[in-house]
């Protein structure tokens, strides 16, 4: 464990608490893509199956349980409790265009041809693009509530912090995970546009609005 990874994971935790806070305080999931949230739940469930047969650490175990449980809880909130506040007509990204290629990529790139390793690879590729329905929705509506942008910023920071973590691990542990690194770089790159607007507008006290 190094500080980059620790702060990355804490940022990931923070993003989920911000999202829950957004939903509870506005009593609405307006502006949140159900598709992205469903993809994240899929990512966690397919990746963390090793919970049942592999012990890494108490930290690792607790985080995995938290990410699976919180992502399912968010789906429940969106699908049932705050269902009327979710507008599927703006959440129109076709997720099959993400799922299909991720299945193919997992079949092509994996460390071992076994069910858990294929699912692990699939989850890594899927996580890289899971934010796209959300970013697509943002692009379509052209604006976002400030708290939603904090959620996205925390999520993006988590991914960004994993990059120095990999560099650090390369030098200190001689450890490289090419699949995770490649997918992670792509994932972080997807946030660059968002980060630009976040830093130049939201953090200057303005509303998140995309140029028309």
């Amino acid at each position: 464990m190094n500080l980059f990874r620790l702060f990355g994971d804490l940022s990931h935790l923070a993003s989920i608490f911000i999202l829950l806070q957004k939903i509870q305080s506005t009593r609405s999931c307006r502006g949140i893509s159900f598709k992205t949230q469903a993809l994240y739940a899929t990512v966690f469930i397919t990746r963390y199956l090793d919970l049942f047969y592999e012990w890494v650490s108490l930290y690792n175990f607790t985080m995995k349980v938290f990410f699976i449980a919180s992502s399912c809880y968010i789906l429940y909130l969106m699908k049932y409790k705050y269902r009327p506040t979710h507008d599927p007509s703006i959440d129109t990204f076709r997720v099959e265009y993400l799922l299909g290629p991720c299945v193919v990529l997992a079949l092509l790139f994996h460390y071992k041809f076994s069910i858990p390793e294929l699912l692990w690879s699939f989850s890594i590729f899927l996580e890289a693009v899971a934010i796209l329905p959300q970013l697509f929705m943002l692009q379509r509506t052209g604006e976002a509530e400030t708290i939603t942008t904090h959620y996205l910023a925390a999520l993006g920071a988590y991914r960004a912090l994993y990059i120095p973590n990999w560099i650090y691990r390369y030098f200190t542990e001689d450890m490289v995970d090419p699949i995770a690194v490649t997918a992670g770089l792509v994932q972080t790159a997807l946030y660059l546009d968002f980060f630009y607007v976040y830093f130049t507008k939201v953090l200057q006290g303005q509303k998140f609005e995309l140029p028309a």
Partner: peptide, 10 residues
């Protein structure tokens, strides 16, 4: 290679 990196990251 056939070596599987340990999946110790989240």
């Amino acid at each position: 290679g056939s070596e599987v990196p340990k999946h110790d990251e989240l």
